[in-house]
Design a protein around this nucleic acid. Structure first.
Lengths: 334, 334
DNA sequence: GCCGCCTATGTAAACGATTACATCGACGGC
DNA sequence: GCCGTCGATGTAATCGTTTACATAGGCGGC
């Protein structure tokens, strides 16, 4: 198990200089076919594999983009990561995916690590509604792109879903299908996309001529437990609603699991319009409508944005991309 | 936006040599407190950040471990990745997570990329039951650890669940709770963990004095669609079983979603024992029992194995770790 | 007071690639 | 036949660290 071969070994074996080897490695023109072939043979013989670390040092480009996600075990975030990875693969870029565990401090620490690793850029799915801790990195020249949501005190390119439009569309469709009194369950309105979805809901109500009823609007935190608690809460009040718009998938799961714990009679006739659908959505028995985000495309756009920003670091203004959502009539309704 | 500061700039500003700066950066002893302080100040003043690429080049260690997973959008695999990341973080290691998209060729390509990136080791969750394409990398000196399952034609350290024991335990419990005629739905028996789970099921039947009935044993491919189809198939036969052991979560979801599409009367009394549980498991309404894998620990063990292997590359034999599972009585049963 | 040793620090050579610049033929135009 | 040009290849500096080795005080023992 000798040391791995270097470009010098290859050069020697092919009787050329390292410059020439490097040229064939990088598909440079200006190298005649015969030479190229000799080099290729030497590479194969020696099982040479280029050392990208050395390459990165010299070229000051690691061809790596960092992704910081609040969680790893979340199909929505990983769907975005997937979209990013697929898009970047074509450009021979790789991706380092890190979990901030929904902590702002960890997010900051990860940025520091990624800077040390000399990634060419970072795509952040923010863990909170704050962004000030990202600023120093951006100021130091690190390209940063936001995905899924915006944050306070920080401006950057961003790839987002049209949360407002999606919510409005699904609630409007819900109304067309006869729902009148529609409760809202969603994330804290301090978070950009939660707020946008809530506003979309309100817009649809207004356009449908339905009076808003603040008593049946509940805000939680994007987690199952929260969805479960809010559903319980709403059903526990006097004259409970029977139709719900639940603006987040995990809250939707939690709410549904609460419904399943009720006696058959109590839950009959309950209908839900949701946001997002995933592999396990067929299990969401009360769901009749949902809007899907174009998750992979969202990742693809984030990838495009980061590459643009890497390419020309002084693009004047942040570019915000809004992806349309898609209305889905759930099978469950039939 | 000047160039970022280097160790030389820091050295100059602190009036020491680069060697000394490097020493304080690496917590080397042999540097007196006053000097250390001066260096720290210079680092802060210049907002110096170490260039890990150069460090890696010199030390021949990138402090990065690659993870190759068949999918990103899969909470089970990402749970493992999470466990790995958490364990490695303590050792100042980072992680590159890549998706092989369940393709062996892509798996191979990723290994090549990771070798170029000079990762210190790779943890592979195999995309198939074949492993021969991993051998050349191992032979070339790359530490490789398997997670979740074993493969043919390739020997390496591995972190696995006790699939046999887990399946046996849950099926035995199922029998104790009155199930007699238990159908099997699982992955192709060519895959190591699918086979092990099937054998666990058979063992439990044998121990419970229940005769095996090959007609109600079905093998699919670990996906929702497959679970759905097999459930449909089993229920479509004459004298269909009412109790099922479904040896994989996604098949379980698929099977459940088929049940939900049936009229109430037809699905009444059906009971399922499952493998794994996740955030959305409360939605699996027919499930009464499940075994949980210790997913995070599995990742932690994989991390330990890879670090061991990185430390002493010539450990004689592959080490196989089997993690116990945990029986869970599902809320749904109450 | 000298010697040896130990501790803090400096010097400079790597690590393995890329690439600006130099070189060297060959070839075509006149 | 000479010169200019251009295409293929080589030479060697460089990227930012780490680290083996050198050095230089300082101090204790005798």
């Amino acid at each position: 198990m000798g040391k791995t071969a270097t470009i010098r070994d290859v050069a020697q074996r092919a009787s050329v200089s390292t410059a020439t080897v490097s040229r064939v490695l990088n598909d440079d023109a200006h190298v005649v076919e015969a030479t190229r072939q000799r080099v290729m043979d030497a590479i194969a013989d020696l099982r040479y594999s280029r050392n990208d670390v050395a390459r990165s040092l010299k070229t000051r480009s690691s061809r790596i983009v960092g992704i910081v996600s609040p969680e790893l075990t979340n199909d929505f975030f990983m769907g975005i990561a997937n979209g990013i990875e697929a898009a970047l693969k074509k450009l021979k870029y790789s991706v380092i995916i890190c979990s901030s565990n929904e902590s702002r401090d960890e997010e900051k620490r990860l940025l520091k690590v990624l800077v040390e690793k000399a990634v060419d850029g970072v795509i952040v799915i923010p863990a909170s509604d704050k962004g000030s801790h990202l600023k120093p990195f951006q100021d130091a020249g690190m390209p940063i792109v936001l995905a899924d949501r915006l944050v306070e005190d920080f401006e950057a390119d961003a790839a987002l879903s049209d949360n407002f439009g999606g919510a409005r569309e699904v609630v409007a469709a819900f109304i067309r299908r006869g729902a009148r009194r529609i409760a809202f369950i969603g994330g804290a309105s301090r978070l950009s996309n939660a707020r946008e979805r809530f506003e979309g809901y309100r817009a649809a109500l207004a356009e449908g001529g339905i009076e808003e009823e603040p008593g049946i609007e509940r805000f939680g935190d994007f987690h199952m437990e929260s969805g479960r608690a809010l559903m319980k809460d709403l059903l526990g009040r006097e004259n409970p609603p029977r139709a719900f718009f639940i603006a987040n998938l995990y809250m939707h799961i939690g709410a549904t699991s609460f419904l399943l714990s009720l006696p058959e009679a109590e839950r009959r006739g309950i209908r839900i319009a949701g946001f997002d659908s995933m592999a396990y959505s067929p299990l969401l028995g009360f769901c009749t409508l949902a809007v899907e985000q174009r998750i992979a495309e969202l990742g693809g756009e984030a990838a495009r944005l980061i590459m643009d920003r890497i390419g020309k670091r002084d693009k004047p203004f942040p570019e915000i991309v809004r992806l349309p959502t898609r209305l889905v009539v759930t099978e469950n309704e039939r």
